[in-house]
């Protein structure tokens, strides 16, 4: 009974917004997004989670439209959305817009961020941006076997502490780490793990001050907005989409 209630409050309340983005979540308990750089084996993870339903490609920018799939875990129906692989969410290319809008307006229950373990510095660019938008995420260190072959290992506990989200090591092509990934996703979705995501600190001090000023103003106007700081940064960057969302009222979707 309690479990049912928990689910009523966690996933379905956002179904109207998801429907607007073209996702039907009528029968799903949780909606989970899959994000990551191109060439990180994102689609392999997708296939490992859902079964063979989508092509995996060693090519940047393969999935421009979203691919959807689903799986069951502990009597929960889980809907998985594969977002286009992007290096960032700051430019205005079509695929970045799709990925950004889904994480921002679709508010998935969990965002899995796939990272190439041998190239984490470069991949963290996207990770840090996603963590500014959502506070429910799991980092999946994929291609661990390849990294180890090249003498690179990752201290996942330190990484988890630094980022404030759970980190799971995987090697999707060898089907290693997938069960751990599934159970971690579940724990985050059910709020058994509460994330305290990293916030970008590297801005210059004057810029930081201005961001804080705008952030404060946004929070005053929109109390309870989870990603006000990120919105502040986007407004300072003259992001036309965000300005438009503010003007036409789509922005209110971000609340609650």
């Amino acid at each position: 009974m309690t479990e049912l209630e928990a689910c009523n409050s966690c996933a379905l309340n956002n179904s109207a917004q998801l429907l607007k983005l073209g996702i039907n979540v009528d029968h799903a308990d949780f909606v989970i997004a899959l994000a990551g750089n191109p060439n990180t084996g994102k689609s392999t993870i997708f296939n490992a989670l859902t079964g063979l339903k989508q092509h995996t490609g060693n090519w940047p920018g393969k999935t421009v439209t979203r691919a959807e799939g689903g799986y069951r875990y502990k009597d929960h129906k889980i809907k998985l959305i594969d977002l286009p692989g992007t290096y960032s969410l700051l430019s205005t290319s079509q695929d970045e817009e799709i990925a950004r809008n889904f994480i921002l307006f679709g508010k998935p229950d969990v965002t899995i961020i796939i990272v190439d373990a041998a190239r984490i510095e470069r991949n963290l660019n996207l990770v840090l941006q996603i963590l500014e938008i959502t506070d429910r995420a799991v980092l999946c260190l994929n291609l661990m076997d390849e990294a180890l072959r090249h003498h690179i290992d990752i201290d996942e506990r330190t990484l988890s502490r630094e980022l404030g989200i759970p980190v799971v090591k995987c090697s999707a092509i060898k089907k290693q780490g997938i069960p751990e990934l599934i159970s971690t996703i579940h724990q985050v979705a059910k709020r058994q793990i509460i994330c305290k995501p990293h916030r970008i600190k590297g801005l210059s001090r004057p810029a930081q001050k201005i961001v804080d000023k705008l952030d404060k103003k946004i929070r005053k106007n929109y109390p309870g907005l989870p990603n006000s700081r990120w919105i502040a940064m986007r407004l300072l960057d003259a992001d036309a989409d965000i300005i438009e969302a503010l003007k036409n009222g789509d922005f209110n979707l971000l609340l609650a």
Binding site: N125, E156, M233
Partner: peptide, 19 residues
């Protein structure tokens, strides 16, 4: 400035965690 800031953070984290 923003992108540089993000990469600065990324470099620090990577340095702490890469073995």
């Amino acid at each position: 400035n923003l992108v540089e800031g993000i990469y600065t953070d990324a470099a620090q984290i990577a340095q702490k965690t890469e073995i």
